[in-house]
Design a protein around this nucleic acid. Structure first.
Length: 182
DNA sequence: GCCTGGATTGTCT
DNA sequence: GACAATCCAGGCA
């Protein structure tokens, strides 16, 4: 079992540009699986690349909930992506979890991912969801009080994150809101 | 090891 | 009807 303190609601209910980099080296837990977060991206409602830019829809409704929820969406016809909702109710902010390093439940992840090398188990947004068994049923899960998925702070210092442009987006490339710790 | 292109479906315009 | 916050297999160096 991974030791650590659960991040609380006030942590999430700040601006996404503050929460994003602080999520690095926190521990994502889903069932018996856990992993250290090493890459994230921030999305805001004033950002043309964000799902929330064009306002609330049935798909992105979770993004407009108060911070501390899990926002899961389906993309490219075959992949899920997991986000952490930040800011207050109606803010339309979220941090995309892009990559984690597996630390617990590795056997389960290997089984789900078809026996790939450990390095490749959860080093991308879609792979991360597959490894942790996250799907649309987890959309809207409460990270603060829920049992299924949560994020822990095990005391590891926040690293000096590198910022880079975000991946796979064609607009707003002048927002370097991607942080990686490796 | 690096680069290229195909797969596949929900959602919005 | 077009696009999307992607992944992986395959070809070539």
């Amino acid at each position: 079992m991974t030791a650590g303190r659960r991040l609380d609601a006030p942590f999430y209910r700040r601006d996404v540009l503050d929460v994003g980099p602080e999520l690095l080296h926190k521990v994502l837990v889903a069932g018996e699986c856990a992993g250290r977060i090493v890459e994230v991206e921030a999305y805001r409602s004033d950002d043309p690349a964000s799902h929330s830019f064009r306002g609330r829809t049935a798909r992105n409704a979770t993004m407009f909930e108060p911070g501390g929820l899990l926002y899961v969406y389906f993309t490219y016809g075959m992949h899920f992506c997991a986000n952490v909702v930040t800011g207050g109710a109606g803010a339309g902010q979220a941090v995309l979890l892009r990559a984690v390093v597996p630390t617990a439940g590795v056997e389960t992840m290997r089984a789900r991912r078809g026996g790939r090398p450990d390095r490749l188990l959860a080093d991308g947004p879609g792979k991360l969801c597959q490894a942790f068994g996250i799907d649309r049923g987890d959309d809207g899960a409460d990270l603060v009080t829920g049992d299924r998925v949560t994020i822990l702070d095990d005391g590891t210092p926040v690293p000096s994150a590198r910022t880079t442009p975000r991946i796979g987006i064609r607009v707003a490339v002048d927002h370097p809101w991607r942080w990686l710790a490796r």
